[in-house]
Amino acid sequence: MTSMQKWTTKHLTLCAVLTALALALSTLENLFPVTLLIPLPGVKLGLANIVTLFALYYLGTGSAFMILIARCLLGALFAGNASALLFSLLGGVLAMAIMALLRRCRKLSVYGVSIAGAAGHNIGQICAAMITLGNTMVLGYLPFLLLVSLFSGALTGFVVALLFRAMEHVKLSRT
């Protein structure tokens, strides 16, 4: 963990930029109407996981967690929708927890971590749906969402891998 981080201006700025990026990705997701396939309001692909995953590797769990929370709160604020907060929080935190655990495994690449995170994201969203709707019928969507998460997870992993390859040439905040 990175409990004793020094909060340099650079770090803070990076966190802020990543939060903004995550918010932008959350909005971008609305262009992919998963809800057409799975009629549950609030269910999303989880593209914002790109940021979570990147922040996890690059800044550590603590910062990644704060970016996640900020993204969820701000996102709900923009959408003006409290139940969306539950969806994104449960999905986001679960994805984050799983990825934080798995990234310590040296035998897993960013793809494996990402797929597990995407699956966690969808499980969290279904849990949120079960809580808000008060029934287990929505559980029937989980298998489809999990299949979707294989692809969205691989995609997220691919993007993050690209990002890190690009980062090799940029010395951003590593001081």
Binding site: T2, Y58, S109, F164, S173
Partner: peptide
């Protein structure tokens, strides 16, 4: 910045398939 973060493995590994299999 002193993160203990290690850079990720960027190429798919065998164990990744296991993760995908578990999800499946």
């Amino acid at each position: 910045m002193t993160t203990k973060c290690s850079p990720p493995e960027l190429r798919p590994k065998k164990l990744d398939i296991l993760v995908a299999a578990v999800v499946l």
